[in-house]
Design a protein around this nucleic acid. Sequence first.
DNA 1: TTAATTTGTAAAATTAGCTTTACATTTGGG
DNA 2: CCCAAATGTAAAGCTAATTTTACAAATTAA
Lengths: 67, 67
Amino acid sequence: MKNLIKVERARNNITQAELADKVKVSRQTINSIETGRFIPSALLAFKIANVLHRTADEVFQLEDSDW
Amino acid sequence: MKNLIKVERARNNITQAELADKVKVSRQTINSIETGRFIPSALLAFKIANVLHRTADEVFQLEDSDW
DNA sequence: TTAATTTGTAAAATTAGCTTTACATTTGGG
DNA sequence: CCCAAATGTAAAGCTAATTTTACAAATTAA
């Protein structure tokens, strides 16, 4: 499961810390997701996409290796 | 966070057990998500949507109460 | 180039998702 | 009605997500 959080953050000119605040998780959680250390809950994934003005499908994508 | 798994299962004429098999989780996990007892990981949510021939955004939706 | 901001990690503790087993209730077809 | 299939739950145990604290490395701005 890949994500475009970093790209979309750049597009929105927002830091990891700011994104974290807006979705109410710690900065480390955002960093860990962004760097692929772990996978967010669906709730968090949708909130992140929302804050980045994208749909969840635009920000998160399944990979062949996920099956 | 609401989901339309039950509706989409009906549309695809597939049981909880069959859906569970296809996304490789237990039947109870599907049931628990469907009945709102817990929220799936983003990975599982996207797989479920995929098996149901829908996008994640079509199957899962944020609610005002999520914020 | 220095200082401040941002990002990357790590470890320990907590929380929540998921599995397995097990059983009760509901629904659908004959 | 009756049986089989499907669904709803529950508890115990395991795994993965998330928090908190803390610090180092990298970027950016002045």
